[in-house]
Write a protein that binds this DNA or RNA. Structure first.
Lengths: 82, 82
DNA sequence: CAGTATCCTGCTAGATACTG
DNA sequence: CAGTATCTAGCAGGATACTG
């Protein structure tokens, strides 16, 4: 969910996601991204350069999750304090 | 999520939830319900009778999750086949 | 009926180190 | 930079049996 929340705002690089998802280890992040990719929710674009660059972005199917994430965010903002 | 999906349609008893959530063990169901109760999402109504009766229902806070569950259900129906 | 108690296993995911 | 490899601990949760 937190990955998707980030990707709602545009493509993100691996290290950007890792910085945003405080505490996540690279293997966990990698694993999550692969699962999301397998499910057709996230697309990975890899550029073989030096340094290498990778971007993750929502697919159409992923974009259609915006309604879910948005509803959840609204609920969270309403009911969370602190 | 599946508990909440059920409770959207009205109060449910412990055994009704257990039948609906195929494969869930009673301790797991009990644990989930307690967590939801602690978070103020579900309310438990217990009637000391013979046989005893318990009902679980959404609180106001829980009701406000309908938008989330609904959005997720719509997405699931659109993207799931089989 | 509505749970609790106990036991046990598998998976999630962090820590750490390493590679193209 | 963008990961993979390896190890390990903790915990979620199923199986089963039992209680008021």
């Amino acid at each position: 969910m937190l990955i998707l929340r980030d990707l709602r705002e545009g493509p993100r690089k691996f290290h950007e996601l890792q910085e945003s998802l405080v505490g996540i280890s690279p293997n966990t992040l990698s694993s999550r991204l692969k699962t999301l990719e397998q499910h057709g929710i996230v697309e990975r674009r890899f550029y073989e350069q030096h340094p290498p660059r990778a971007e993750y972005l929502l697919t159409q199917k992923g974009n259609e999750l915006r309604a879910v994430i948005g509803a959840l965010r609204d609920w969270g903002e309403k009911h969370t304090r602190g």
